[in-house]
Design a protein around this nucleic acid. Structure first.
Lengths: 252, 252
DNA sequence: CAAACACACGGTGTCGACACTATCCCACTC
DNA sequence: GAGTGGGATAGTGTCGACACCGTGTGTTTG
């Protein structure tokens, strides 16, 4: 049934989040996907240089499409660009991260409320199915597959609600937190908690309890932030011993 | 005192909202400002073609910086770009507009709550001063000056709250509604209502009543949407008689 | 006379080149 | 030896050219 879930489903989902379909030339899309997935999966480290010459060599193109791809990623907060300076992988401060999660919490609450209001029973059943699959992935400890299912679940929810502006903003915020979430979901037990949260949220939706759904998703967001904070602290402690200041270029 | 309030303050504010400072080359900034202000002030009509050749001729540059400027405006929702098609001035549907205002309401509520929590008395006094000036502009019927003061007021509020993500999103949403608001504020009496709303909001802040402040700003947003809807209906009626389908190019 | 087709025009996407400048390294100074 | 200044280096921003493709027009065909 879900046989088409290739290992590069990730890239397809990412392409949707970046709204590359029809909006950009395939060449630009390809570059944006490679760099974007590299950032999310940690292949490219925060602060690392992304110079357009190396990237253009890697993709055997000129610098024009590379620049365009980097601009796409910049607007989603994955890349930082300053005029005349080399673009770099975004390195959000702890404060930035807290700010993002705060806004995200607010908008996810809104999403939950609208979902209760607008989702048909069939749509809820479909979501239930998805969460069921996620439970399985969580039990198997398949972090990567769970991670992307989570992204797709939220994507589907925003689609159901049908507010395209809300969807766009939530997608963008999701992208910004994606690199962090990837880390935080690795933390022991986090996967199970996360799937529990999803199940409770969905149950509230099925009971058409908007208040509860809002509160649940807000709580889940707060917990997610907490997990990220703990992970970052841990990283910082680890980095204290061995201050790896690798700032090399992307394409090698 | 406020002698430096040149008539091109507008452009400076716009440049801030587009985050052009240091992020883009001056040339790109200049083009983005011209096109952006053109869209907001109605000089360029929704749906109108923005072909890069004409624009590059107008600014006596190549098409590269023009394309970049258009991409900046695209990410703020002022311009629509599809691969291989000519960029056009965005023409949001009524549904889009409602969606935008719905999200805006939610985030402005959040802003009001945070403002009550975090603004110092000095900062509130400063806001009070601004609103005072706005009252004067409203009484004088200076729609344009009031309009931009309003934008700056919200800008200042988001600064005080200090959540940069929230600021960025609200700025972006403000831009999207700017062309509409410009129209709607022209409606008779709208100016007075608007300034009343601001004064009540500020009073709630001074009384440190977060709930009230949230509710007030939400109400004000709903009223603003209503005004826009009425204006659009009126326009549509007017256009029914004379279906001006001007789709000419931007630079002439 | 309407619909389909083909063609010419105009506009977009990409390229390689060039001027300008941030950055890095090293010699020089104190 | 630390700090400062002066290149060399490497990367960015912009340009004009060119190939490809969307679009409008005029022509053909049923």
């Amino acid at each position: 049934m879900a046989a088409e879930e290739d290992e590069d489903t990730h890239v397809v989902v990412l392409a949707r989040l970046l709204r590359l379909r029809d909006r950009r030339e395939p060449l630009v899309a390809q570059i944006a996907e490679w760099v974007g997935s590299g950032i999310i999966e940690g292949r490219l480290e925060p602060g690392q240089d992304l110079n357009s010459v190396d990237l253009s060599r890697r993709f055997d193109t000129s610098r024009t499409p590379v620049r365009e791809a980097l601009m796409v990623l910049e607007q989603e907060g994955l890349v930082e660009m300053k005029a005349r300076r080399r673009p770099r992988v975004a390195a959000p401060s702890l404060q930035d991260i807290r700010d993002i999660y705060q806004v995200r919490r607010q908008l996810l609450s809104m999403l939950a409320g609208l979902l209760v209001e607008r989702a048909s029973d069939e749509e809820l059943a479909e979501l239930r199915l998805r969460v069921g699959r996620m439970r399985k992935l969580a039990d198997d400890g398949d972090v990567d597959a769970y991670f992307w299912s989570h992204v797709q679940l939220q994507e589907r929810m925003t689609e159901i609600v049908g507010n395209s502006t809300l969807k766009q903003i939530l997608d963008s915020l999701a992208l910004r937190t994606l690199m962090l979430r990837h880390l935080s979901l690795t933390r022991a037990g986090r996967l199970a908690y996360s799937v529990d949260d999803q199940e409770r949220l969905l149950q509230a939706c099925e009971e058409r309890d908007g208040e509860l759904a809002s509160a649940l998703i807000a709580g889940a967001t707060v917990r997610a932030l907490r997990a990220v904070e703990e992970q970052l602290e841990q990283d910082a402690a680890g980095r204290g011993r061995k201050p790896t200041r690798r700032r090399r270029t992307a394409a090698s």
